[in-house]
Deep mutational scan, measured.
Amino acid sequence: TTVVVGNKKYTFDNPEAAEKFAKKVAKKLGATVHKTNGTFKVK
């Protein structure tokens, strides 16, 4: 599962961990999490 934050990509074996990370980053940046085909995008 990939999490994309700006131009950085983070890969997780565990989708739950990926989602948690994405939400944490989004909260910090005041952004939102978008899920597309198993990829979480923070923007």
Rank of each mutant, 00 (worst) to 15 (best):
41 K>S: 13
39 T>A: 14
18 A>N: 00
35 K>Q: 09
41 K>I: 15
22 A>F: 02
6 G>M: 08
41 K>F: 15
14 N>K: 08
31 A>N: 03
34 H>A: 07
7 N>T: 12
29 L>P: 02
1 T>Q: 06
18 A>W: 01
9 K>I: 12
37 N>L: 05
35 K>M: 10
26 A>P: 01
12 F>Q: 01
16 E>M: 12
31 A>Q: 05
13 D>V: 11
16 E>Q: 13
6 G>V: 05
4 V>G: 03
13 D>T: 13
5 V>H: 03
32 T>E: 09
32 T>M: 07
6 G>C: 13
19 E>L: 13
14 N>A: 07
37 N>R: 04
30 G>H: 07
16 E>N: 09
25 V>L: 09
6 G>F: 14
3 V>D: 00
34 H>I: 15
39 T>G: 15
34 H>P: 01
2 T>R: 08
30 G>K: 06
20 K>I: 11
24 K>N: 10
14 N>M: 07
25 V>D: 00
17 A>S: 11
38 G>W: 03
15 P>V: 11
2 T>V: 13
14 N>R: 07
21 F>G: 00
39 T>M: 15
35 K>S: 07
9 K>M: 10
9 K>V: 13
15 P>M: 12
28 K>T: 08
12 F>T: 00
36 T>R: 06
19 E>K: 06
28 K>C: 11
2 T>A: 09
14 N>V: 07
34 H>S: 12
20 K>G: 08
33 V>K: 01
28 K>Q: 12
27 K>I: 09
7 N>Y: 10
7 N>F: 08
21 F>E: 01
2 T>I: 14
8 K>F: 11
20 K>N: 12
31 A>F: 10
14 N>I: 07
36 T>G: 09
10 Y>A: 02
27 K>S: 08
11 T>A: 08
20 K>L: 10
15 P>E: 13
32 T>W: 04
17 A>N: 09
28 K>L: 14
15 P>H: 09
21 F>D: 00
36 T>Q: 13
4 V>H: 09
35 K>V: 13
16 E>W: 12
24 K>R: 13
41 K>H: 15
20 K>D: 13
2 T>M: 12
43 K>W: 13
33 V>N: 01
20 K>H: 11
3 V>M: 02
24 K>Y: 14
8 K>G: 05
21 F>C: 04
5 V>S: 03
30 G>F: 04
41 K>V: 15
17 A>D: 12
13 D>W: 09
12 F>S: 00
1 T>M: 08
17 A>W: 08
18 A>T: 01
3 V>C: 03
43 K>D: 13
7 N>L: 10
13 D>K: 10
12 F>G: 00
25 V>Q: 05
17 A>H: 09
20 K>P: 01
18 A>I: 01
42 V>T: 03
2 T>H: 13
36 T>M: 11
21 F>P: 01
9 K>Y: 12
10 Y>K: 03
10 Y>N: 02
35 K>P: 03
19 E>F: 13
26 A>Y: 01
14 N>D: 12
6 G>S: 04
15 P>K: 06
16 E>K: 12
31 A>Y: 07
25 V>A: 07
5 V>L: 06
28 K>I: 13
42 V>I: 09
25 V>Y: 04
34 H>L: 13
10 Y>H: 04
28 K>G: 05
40 F>D: 04
27 K>C: 09
31 A>K: 03
20 K>S: 13
6 G>I: 06
21 F>I: 02
11 T>N: 10
4 V>I: 14
34 H>M: 11
15 P>T: 09
39 T>H: 15
43 K>G: 14
40 F>I: 15
30 G>P: 01
41 K>L: 15
18 A>V: 00
34 H>Q: 14
37 N>K: 08
33 V>L: 07
1 T>V: 12
15 P>I: 10
3 V>Q: 01
41 K>P: 05
20 K>T: 10
6 G>D: 04
40 F>M: 13
33 V>C: 05
32 T>K: 09
26 A>S: 04
37 N>G: 12
26 A>C: 02
31 A>S: 06
10 Y>M: 04
32 T>H: 07
42 V>W: 01
28 K>E: 10
32 T>F: 06
3 V>I: 02
19 E>G: 05
12 F>K: 01
18 A>M: 01
2 T>L: 15
34 H>F: 09
40 F>R: 05
30 G>Y: 04
21 F>T: 02
31 A>P: 01
30 G>W: 03
22 A>R: 01
6 G>A: 06
22 A>L: 02
1 T>D: 05
19 E>H: 07
33 V>T: 03
8 K>M: 12
23 K>D: 11
8 K>W: 12
20 K>C: 12
17 A>I: 12
11 T>Q: 12
43 K>I: 15
37 N>V: 03
42 V>D: 04
2 T>S: 10
17 A>R: 08
27 K>V: 08
5 V>N: 01
16 E>S: 11
11 T>G: 06
22 A>H: 01
12 F>H: 02
39 T>P: 03
5 V>C: 06
24 K>T: 10
31 A>I: 05
8 K>N: 08
32 T>L: 06
39 T>S: 15
14 N>F: 07
43 K>P: 06
5 V>Y: 04
27 K>D: 09
15 P>G: 08
8 K>P: 01
31 A>D: 03
1 T>P: 08
15 P>N: 08
11 T>E: 09
30 G>S: 06
18 A>Y: 01
28 K>A: 14
22 A>E: 01
4 V>E: 14
22 A>Y: 02
34 H>G: 04
24 K>P: 00
40 F>L: 15
40 F>E: 05
38 G>K: 06
2 T>C: 07
8 K>V: 08
41 K>Y: 15
11 T>L: 14
21 F>Y: 07
18 A>R: 00
10 Y>Q: 02
21 F>S: 01
6 G>K: 05
24 K>F: 13
7 N>V: 10
22 A>M: 02
11 T>D: 08
6 G>Q: 05
26 A>D: 01
15 P>F: 13
1 T>S: 10
29 L>G: 03
26 A>G: 04
22 A>D: 00
41 K>Q: 15
9 K>L: 10
33 V>F: 05
